[in-house]
């Protein structure tokens, strides 16, 4: 069994999602190679070669891979799949963008967002916003899999895989990159943060999210939101935690003014500790929270920040 893992990176640094995807691949067993598709990504290749359990790292460089355009990634991965029985990638927006294309070209059914590996062909994946867990067995000869990285621990970095380059095989494309507008933030990335503080519709406005900032600063936390808060236009979509946003599993998740709709719980219920502040004592969020504070958030948040200060946090 030979498995290809596609690296998550920004051409400069290798992302932790790659290490977690390697862990999922390791559970399937067999030889694991990593594909680093990008442009000017030498440092990423070097970092990928250190991941435990990896046999080889293949670098493929092309201008269109700098932003990993869907068509370009499809060509590269499909081109390599003659040598592999399975391809795994994290279920981030980068890989969700092209993995279905790879599956269609290989004529296989993609197995999306797996949270468990039972054997080389059997996997566990959440459906219905995580309200049900399906165990599925693939009958396809090749497997195309995206991985819910919050469900897997990161592989270590004491390896020394071989590295090589491969041709991209990319021809004329029907799409081009125009620009990117990344949210500038000194805070940790939402899916990688040890602490996350999220606001919901109860925050009332985007302006009121400032009440969370001081707390986030003290805790070194990433800031998130429920879909309701995104729908209401309070905060950008990439803050969204839940079924249709990001999945997070931090050490501490603080939900503020979030009722706890099933779609939100789907994205955060694997957090180690959950704290919730909500004025409605019957809010479903309290059914999953380890610590619940029934209070008006506009009063509780300043108090919480002051108490953190007092406790020397």
């Amino acid at each position: 069994m030979a498995i290809l893992v596609v690296a998550e990176h920004d051409n400069t640094s290798l992302k932790d999602a790659t290490h977690k995807t390697v862990t999922a691949a390791t559970k399937m067993g067999g030889d694991i190679d990593i594909l680093v598709a990008g442009k000017g990504m030498k440092s990423v290749i070097a970092a990928a070669a250190k991941i435990d359990g990896v046999r080889a790292v293949i670098g493929v460089e092309h201008a269109s891979l700098e932003r990993q355009l869907a068509e370009a990634m499809e060509t590269v991965v499909v081109g390599l799949m003659g040598n592999y029985d399975a391809v795994l990638a994290a279920d981030t927006t980068t890989h969700k963008n092209y993995m279905p294309r790879v599956a269609a070209k290989l004529d296989v059914q993609q197995i999306s967002s797996i949270t468990g590996v039972e054997s080389t062909d059997t996997f566990i994946r959440p459906i219905y916003a995580g309200n049900a867990m399906a165990t599925v067995q693939s009958t396809d000869s090749k497997k195309v899999i995206t991985v819910r990285t919050t469900a897997f621990a990161a592989a270590g970095e004491s390896g020394s895989a071989s590295t090589s380059d491969a041709d991209s095989g990319i021809g004329a494309l029907k799409s081009e990159f125009v620009g990117e507008e990344l949210t500038k933030s000194d805070r940790p990335e939402l899916t990688a943060a040890k602490t996350v503080i999220s606001g919901g519709r109860g925050m009332g406005s985007g302006e009121n999210f400032k009440l969370l900032e001081g707390i986030a600063d003290k805790l070194g936390a990433a800031m998130g939101a429920s879909r309701a808060a995104v729908d209401a236009g309070f905060v950008p979509n990439d803050w969204q935690v839940g079924q249709t946003g990001k999945s997070v599993a931090p050490q501490l998740y603080i939900a503020v003014g979030i009722s706890g709709a099933i779609q939100h719980l789907a994205g955060m219920k694997d957090s180690k500790v959950i704290a919730a502040i909500n004025k409605d004592e019957d809010a479903p969020i309290f059914q999953v929270a380890d610590y619940g504070l029934v209070a008006d958030l506009f009063k509780a948040l300043p108090e919480f920040e002051a108490e953190l200060e007092k406790a020397g946090v």
Partner: peptide, 23 residues
Amino acid sequence: RLKTLKVTEPAAREAGIKVEDAA
């Protein structure tokens, strides 16, 4: 192409405690 072997409830998370105040 996929055989669904089983569909189960996710592991339930127990509700914790209510605290009195921010402190």
